[in-house]
Each structure stands twice: as structure tokens, then as C-alpha cells.
């Protein structure tokens, strides 16, 4: 048990290091897209450690407690995440719904802490984040439901990945093309990439939920954000891109997915919040349901 917990914490740490490095590399790539030189690849590490070295302000116990709960919830979620087929802390317990809902604990902690700061912009940011969540989560879950149904009924993330590696089965992004598109769009929403960046919106609501954070609290939220991105991108890799047999393949897939999303995001402007909702409930939901019906009832799977 102790070993498992250590492996789990290791996965969380790995996720943090990986995503922080990827974040830095991607800042560099986006800079190149914009004809800039861009920061050092380890810039994100510097940012986070700098935040930890600063003296922050606190708006009362709920402000601190929420941050702890946020990071704790996300670390707990990451502990269940399989990296490759072999690197997994709690085998058999990597249920898809754990990721969706345990992630929500972290989000709730952050939302609570942000509202506890007493800043209206933070509450507006939380409102937008939750509304965006309502938008992207439903189409995504319908697609995942299709996947669970197609794998013969397993919601274990690593087993879904293993299912796609069996000869004769395509990756689900190919097997379910409509669903794949929906998943990519939803992933953009999950990661808060443009055009779904409504809840951060620095120029509009002063970075939303994070408006009152500085110093170590902001640093912890950054760590939380990095691990969240790791969880979400990993989920996408395992559910749609056939998982990873070795660490190298995993890193490659991770890099490709995250970079592709960043490149898409770097050429878009921001939606308004109601546009986000209307958008997701128009095409992605329609496509997700169509995909579910033709895959489950008609059995048309590539």
C-alpha cells in the first residue's frame, strides 16, 4: 500500500514536471509562431518557484483552505492516472468517472477559495468556469459513454487503452471520427484554451478566479493547473489515442496532442461565455449523439 501511494505521488510529480516542461516548450513554440524568440524551456519552473519565494496575502482561512483542497484533490486524481500500461499506482481502480469527479473536488476547492477572497471578479470567473464546464462536459461524456459501451463495458482508462492496442481495433479517434472531433473540441474547453478561455480572460475580468492570488497560493494553483492539464491530456491519450505501451510513446503522444492544441489555440480569439455554451450544445452535442447512435445501435465503427 505504501509503495502504491509512493508510485501515485510519483505519477503526480511526473505529471507536474512533464506538463511544466511541456508548457515551457509550448510557450517557445507559440512564440515562434508569432515570430518571437520565446522564453527558456524551463521558464514555467522558474515562474512557479518564484511564486513560492514571494510573500503573499491571505483573505482568511477559507482562502488558504480552498487552495490546499484544490491542490490535494488534483494530486489525488493524478495518483489514479495510468501513464503507460505498466506505470499505474492502483491497478483496476482507474475508473473514468473518478477522474471526472475527483477532478471536480479540486475545482470546487479553487472555486471556494476564489469566492472566499471577496473579489467579485473572482466569482465571475468561477461562474464562467462552471458554465464552460457545463458546456464541454456533456458532449465529452456522451462520447466516452460510446467508448465504454464499445469496449464491452469497461470504464477503466488503462483497459480502454489496452483495448485499442489489440490488433484489429483502431484508435478511437479513428474508429469514432465524429466523437474524436468532439473530444478534441471538449479538450480545448477543459484546458481553457482559446477560443474557450472565457473564464481566465485577463483583459476582461483580470484573470478571473486567480485575481486575488499571489505568492505561494498562486504557485500552488499553478502546480494544480499543470497537474490538471496532465490529467486531461493523459485521459485523451488513453481514451482516444490508444494509450501508450512505453514511456517514449507516451511522451511523444503527449507532446503532439498538447502542441497541436496550443497551435490551434494560438490563432483563435476568445468566445463570449454564452457563445461557448451555445456552441457546445449545437454541433459537438449533436455530433456526439449521432456518433453514439450510429456506433451503439448500428454498429458502424471504423
Amino acid at each position: 500500500m505504501v509503495v502504491n501511494i509512493l508510485v501515485g505521488l510519483g505519477v503526480a510529480l511526473f505529471g507536474f514536471v512533464l506538463q511544466t516542461a511541456m508548457g515551457g516548450i509550448n510557450r517557445k513554440i507559440v512564440a515562434r509562431v508569432q515570430k518571437r524568440i520565446g522564453p527558456k524551456w524551463y521558464q514555467e519552473f522558474i515562474d512557479i518557484f518564484k511564486l513560492f519565494s514571494k510573500r503573499s496575502v491571505s483573505h482568511g482561512w477559507i482562502f488558504d483552505f480552498g487552495v490546499i483542497m484544490a491542490l490535494g484533490g488534483i494530486i489525488a486524481t493524478a495518483m489514479f492516472m495510468p501513464v503507460t500500461a505498466n506505470i499505474i499506482a492502483f491497478e483496476g481502480y482507474d475508473n473514468f468517472f473518478i477522474f471526472v469527479y475527483l477532478l471536480a473536488v479540486g475545482m470546487l476547492g479553487m472555486a471556494m477559495s476564489a469566492s472566499g477572497s471577496g473579489n467579485p471578479l473572482a466569482s465571475i470567473g468561477v461562474m464562467r468556469a462552471l458554465t464552460t464546464m457545463l458546456a464541454y462536459e456533456v458532449p465529452f461524456m456522451i462520447v466516452v459513454m460510446t467508448i465504454i459501451k464499445l469496449t464491452g463495458g469497461t470504464s477503466s482508462v488503462s483497459e480502454i487503452a489496452a483495448f485499442q492496442q489489440i490488433a484489429g481495433n483502431n484508435w478511437f479517434i479513428i474508429a469514432l471520427p465524429l466523437g474524436g472531433i468532439v473530444a478534441i473540441i471538449s479538450l480545448m474547453g477543459m484546458l481553457g484554451k482559446k477560443p474557450f478561455e472565457t473564464y481566465i480572460a485577463p483583459a476582461e475580468i483580470a484573470s478571473g478566479p486567480m485575481v486575488e492570488y499571489g505568492g505561494k497560493q498562486l504557485g500552488m494553483l499553478f502546480v494544480m493547473h499543470e497537474i490538471t492539464v496532465f490529467i486531461e491530456v493523459s485521459l485523451f491519450i488513453h481514451l482516444f489515442l490508444g494509450g501508450a505501451a512505453t514511456l517514449g510513446v507516451y511522451l511523444l503522444k503527449y507532446f503532439l496532442v498538447y502542441t497541436a492544441l496550443n497551435l490551434i489555440s494560438s490563432v483563435y480569439a476568445r468566445f463570449k461565455i454564452d457563445q461557448v455554451v451555445v456552441f457546445f450544445y449545437k454541433w459537438p452535442l449533436f455530433m456526439a449523439v449521432t456518433q453514439a447512435i450510429i456506433a451503439i445501435y448500428l454498429g458502424w465503427v471504423i
Partner: peptide, 22 residues
Amino acid sequence: MTSAYDMERLGMGPMATPRQAD
């Protein structure tokens, strides 16, 4: 900030609120 001089290569960047800024 933009491609002419690109201060991001020095690690600098704009922030939204005084709490976050250095």
C-alpha cells in the same frame, strides 16, 4: 512585448492584477 523585442525571452510577461505582479 511583441516580436520586435520579445521581452518573454527574459521571462517577463504581463499580468492582470497587482497581487500576481512583481
